[in-house]
Design a protein around this nucleic acid. Structure first.
Length: 112
DNA sequence: AGTGTGACACTGG
DNA sequence: TCCAGTGCCACAC
């Protein structure tokens, strides 16, 4: 890997993990960041999602913060689009807050 | 080359 | 227990 400066290796890793999120499950930015070895860069994961926002293979709606709040829903097209997608997968979301978050939480570190 | 920013996470009061 | 402030790394300008 020549690791060219214009090659978002880190972002690509994020997309890979998000893409692995099973149906009806969600994860947190910190979990992904930690899995990538940069737990302190959880914010960077969010930024990566910002770029992934235009990619269909990256279900960003399955990624929320550690408390299970759809913080990034504001970045989606609609206002309740993210919530609709999650509810469509069987995840209950009330007021941007995922119910039974721990139940639907998918830890890449544990699963992978 | 340096500065600013960001969809978070953690600690302290 | 809850609220607020700080730290952090990587990308974009």
């Amino acid at each position: 890997m020549t690791r060219t400066t214009t090659e978002p290796n880190f972002f690509d890793r994020v997309y890979a993990v998000v893409r692995l999120i099973p149906y009806g499950k969600v994860t947190s930015y910190g979990a992904i960041a930690k899995y990538l070895g940069a737990a302190k860069s959880a914010r960077m994961v969010g930024w990566a999602m910002n770029a992934a926002h235009g990619l269909e293979d990256v279900p960003a709606h399955r990624v929320v913060n550690r408390i299970g709040v759809l913080t990034g829903k504001h970045h989606f097209e609609g206002t309740n689009l993210m919530q609709q997608l999650l509810e469509n997968e069987g995840i209950i979301v009330i007021d941007h807050q995922i119910q039974n978050f721990k139940t639907v939480f998918w830890d890449p570190m544990r699963e992978l």
